[in-house]
Write a protein that binds this DNA or RNA. Sequence first.
RNA 1: GGGGGGAUAGCCAAGUGGUCAACGGCAGCAGACUGUAAAUCUGCCCGCGAUUGCGUUCGUAGGUUCGAAUCCUACUCCCCCCA
Length: 427
Amino acid sequence: MTYNYKSSFLQKLSTRGFLYQCTHDQEMDNLFAEGPQKLYIGFDATADSLHVGSLLPLMVLRWAHLCGHEVILLLGGGTTLVGDPSGKEETRTILTKEIICTYTKGIKESVGKLLPMQDDRVRVLNNADWLASLNYLDFLRDIGSLFSVNKMLALESVKTRLDRAQNLSFLEFNYMLCQAYDFFVLSDQQGCMIQGGGSDQWGNIVSGVDLIRRKSGKQAYGLTFPLIETRDGVKMGKTAGGAVWLHPEKKSAYDYWQYWRNVDDREIERFLLLFTCLDEETISDIVKGDPNKAKIRLADEATRLLRGEEVLGAIHETVAALSQEKAPYTVTTTPEGFPVVNTDLPLYKVNRSFLEQDSLLMNLLIEAGAIESKSAVRRLIRDGALSLDGEKIQDELYQISLKDLIDPFVIHIKIGKKKNLLLQVLP
RNA sequence: GGGGGGAUAGCCAAGUGGUCAACGGCAGCAGACUGUAAAUCUGCCCGCGAUUGCGUUCGUAGGUUCGAAUCCUACUCCCCCCA
């Protein structure tokens, strides 16, 4: 459905493919066109970092901020204790308060440079601040009385669980009330009348809108975004190496860049629109050209948005070095005379004394922690997937000795076509 | 409450006393081809080890047997039908 929005914000979202559902298309548009509004999106603390699956809502917040609106990033410190049953076929594992607390911290950090946290139009709140201290009976009377179980049972998220006779605990059943209450609190205390979320959040959002109307007679609004699946129908962000985390400590800038560099050709345009801030014309130009260049651009832009301009130089140097079969690292020396390897690739270290006793390559790799078992190394060598400094290893019992190593004692190991790592022999 | 069916590796799904670490398919990994894409073809794919070895798997716990994913008993969970 294409609709011409008056507000620059919704128009942006619409043309870029962010919109899935809206509670009140036109009214919301009028609101955004009138002047600065407040928009909130919540993120539950189910892991110590967000991953690319959450990038889409984060980008919405970014656009809202760019369009002059105020954004609230709500950390689900309270709601995570309950566990959202939406979109889940099984009961979520119940996390302890302590874990959730450290997770919320990680989640906040993982947002990185996507939002200017110090800006006064960006706020980070935690719903534990009002949910944790609720009095059960008061809550039941004030909020619970306004909910219809009949209605809740009809909701998609609840229905699928009931239809499958999958256990839905009373705890989880209450998630919706908590999220609705969040919305009410934010509308009441912050004047935030608009909530966004993934399409699986529709039911939760709508019940918040409902609650606000019943409780304060005010009109609130909700909008949802599509869930992005890759061409194979797999939820975005899951790759061989697991989730594509946003937190720098869980995903190096180089790997993050590579994730975007390697997307399916057919996703290029969509991803450029969703995950970069390039304007639409530039994007359509990029898409007309060489897909590899387009993907590099996508990787550059996406990495820049999350991690900042400063990481790009080193990534490009590494990429260039690898393609030209040059050393993908540099070595500097500390004032004390110790060599320091500078690289974007994972660096494993092993003591020289180890090589003096054992010269089997596979043992070296295991000792360094680069590969987990001898079987794994053998498999790779048998498949012809392992190379050392550009030379393919054929022999499962390949020997390596100190004599083979030259000065900085760094070995570039390549596993398959894309995995590169370095192994440094400490003097 | 009564009756029937089911639970197999990451997922789907065969197997119904030894030849079963368990057919297929998907996903994953690797190779070839290419463009660090896709499609296709090939190899690997429980873990460890290694020329035929060891360990752990077929819902859970016991039992029968020289031998069980396969038979028996109990338990747990799921699906369907009737009330």
